[in-house]
Design a protein around this nucleic acid. Structure first.
Lengths: 350, 350
DNA sequence: TCTGACTATCGTAACGTTTCGATCGTGACA
DNA sequence: TGTCACGATCGAAACGTTACGATAGTCAGA
């Protein structure tokens, strides 16, 4: 592999001139530059990024830390982030944290050691110590999807509280009163926001929230399946279920079907986040869509803008909270008499 | 950030001794080692991987080059590969090639420049020049899922020809004769193999292959949707469709449903590759499953074994071709009289 | 007491860059 | 003709390691 030294030798100049030529061509006489470029081309010279990074104290890589690489959301996010980063000359290191804050911090250390230029993270921690670690990080950070409350960092996501509110409103407008939510772990920002959006909608409609209808599905399809099983075998079962994530919606749907109920006849189901191939799932789910590619693009740009900022005055943290889009399918319908009566019966007898 | 120099100073020894202590503790007297370890610990010393890599000419990163990060197959693959790599002390750089061989080669160059320790690739090229580039690569390579014919490299995947054969056999046993396959691009190894498995099964059953029933879905759901539309609006439409990938099966299913046909009454559908959440798709698809986690684990181990090999004699290329598992759903059934008659009618009149 | 073998430790050169201050011509001006 | 300024180029130090050959210091054996 040709080094800068080989190029210098071949062009008959010093190493420094070659380096200067690549960094600041206008400070070199035109014909020397030509000679150097030709020599470099001939030798197939590529600067060694390791040496550059060592010298500069920063590499041309961004680190991405997500809870689950294999989830459809992050799959699409990573694809677009990688593309955008590459366009701007950065490679992407990705690591999977399994949603474990301790793992996140350990990987953060590894990334730091690698002198990454910037970090994109979907933070899952909630402790004060965790927040201090995040804040004390010297390289640029952008939070995506999740956020750590009170951290003065860039943040990009779709408005998840609004998403929950839109779906809840929709269900209320259809006539539902007993609406369950299968939530994420509420110590997580997104999960809490989704509960909050639900509460807002209920309150705005003058409806009482039955806390027993808020169950934690831990953002996992299996857990959601189990919770739905529990919900749907209660006497006072809900007439509608709002799943806080796509994976959980699928778990819920499976449980509903296995119990012999049909959707939306026996129970309505709505979900946050697009489901890949939602077109072939019967019934077509009512859901809120987020523009993942846009989230990816904006967050990558926020991060790289920060990375490449030269001005000594720090950039104020930026936020981009995108408005989601409601897509009404046929998994939601007005509650039927039957389920209403079920509920009535329970109310009277209790 | 503390350097080796700080540790040396703090422990009152030379830099070389510190380095030696971490590399070969037994060559250092026990109490010096203790002193050094304590100092390192106190300072929070972490060796700078950039400096190490520069000196060693190789980094502790593996590069992963796949056709589509966001596909469910690669999502799961990456998750497990990253986990295994991290366990063995390697970070993962991933890039998405969009299935474009030229992009692959360009990224290969970038990875080489980074002095990656090893490369995991799902190769999409087919030209001789491409093959030479792959073969001329000096760092260890393992091919996964796809393969380049004739390249003497490690290869890990499930037996995709057998998968196609199993499904075709299944359809034949149900009584189907006009079986279509929505193939991948046939210049790709896996696509060609799947066609081959189909042919084998047909031939073994003494059935003629109607070349018109082999249509290219380019491994894309949209293309498969279009091809299925075409197939199912022909007079001599097939009684069964074999989709060569999960995304294509979903496209096909959508087309079938939109045309007002039902599956399996009007047409049977079978597919290769698991579909995430297949449980909630109606009908439950008959398919062949591959153990992605195992593929990931084996390929990561193949790669890292090669990376860490010290012996001067080269390791012979290894292959792991896993036996897939047939999972019969209710998307496949014997052909109905109606579709048989349709076909008969065409045969007689043509 | 001298030699030789061994162990523990060290100095130094490299890996391939960047960057700063120094040097060398060249031409304008007095 | 000597001085000055300026543009082009260069030398050398530094980034943080590794690894090789060198150097003490210790001890057994003659």
């Amino acid at each position: 592999m040709a080094t800068i030294k080989d190029v210098a030798q071949s062009a008959g100049v010093s190493i420094s001139t070659v380096s200067l030529t690549f960094a600041n061509p206008e400070r070199v006489s035109p014909d020397t530059a030509q000679r150097i470029w030709k020599a470099a081309d001939l030798l197939g010279y590529r600067p060694n990024p390791l040496a550059q990074s060592l010298k500069r104290g920063r590499s041309r890589m961004i680190g991405v830390l997500v809870g689950d690489i294999s989830s459809p959301f992050f799959g699409r996010l990573l694809k677009s982030v990688e593309k955008r980063a590459l366009e701007r000359g950065y490679l992407m290191i990705v690591a999977d944290t399994d949603g474990d804050p301790a793992r996140e911090l350990e990987l953060l250390d590894q990334f730091t050691a690698q002198r990454i230029a910037g970090l994109m993270i979907s933070p899952h921690g909630s402790s004060a110590a965790y927040g201090r670690r995040l804040a004390g990080f010297k390289t640029p950070i952008v939070m995506v999807d999740h956020r750590f409350r009170g951290a003065d960092l860039d943040y990009v996501a779709s408005d998840t509280r609004m998403a929950a509110r839109m779906l809840t409103d929709h269900l209320i407008n259809l006539g539902h009163r007993r609406i369950a939510q299968i939530t994420g772990p509420v110590q997580l920002y997104t999960a809490a926001e989704r509960v909050e959006g639900y509460r807002e909608a209920m309150q705005a409609a003058g409806l009482q929230v039955d806390e027993g209808l808020l169950v934690d599905g831990r953002y996992r399809d299996t857990e959601s399946y189990a919770q739905t099983m529990r919900l749907m075998t209660r006497r006072d079962k809900p007439t509608a279920i709002l799943a806080a994530s796509n994976m959980m919606a699928l778990g819920a749907l499976q449980a509903i079907q296995e119990l012999g109920y049909s959707c939306p006849q026996d129970v309505s189901l709505a979900t946050i986040d697009d489901i890949p191939w939602s077109a072939v799932i019967q019934p077509k789910l009512t859901m809120v869509l987020q523009d993942i590619e846009q989230i990816a693009q904006i967050s990558a740009d926020y991060l790289l803008d920060r990375v490449e900022a030269t001005s000594p005055i720090p950039i104020a943290p930026r936020e981009s909270v995108l408005v989601p889009r409601l897509s009404i399918g046929n998994s939601t319908a007005p509650p039927t008499l039957k389920t209403d009566l079920d509920h009535l019966h329970v109310s009277l007898s209790s």
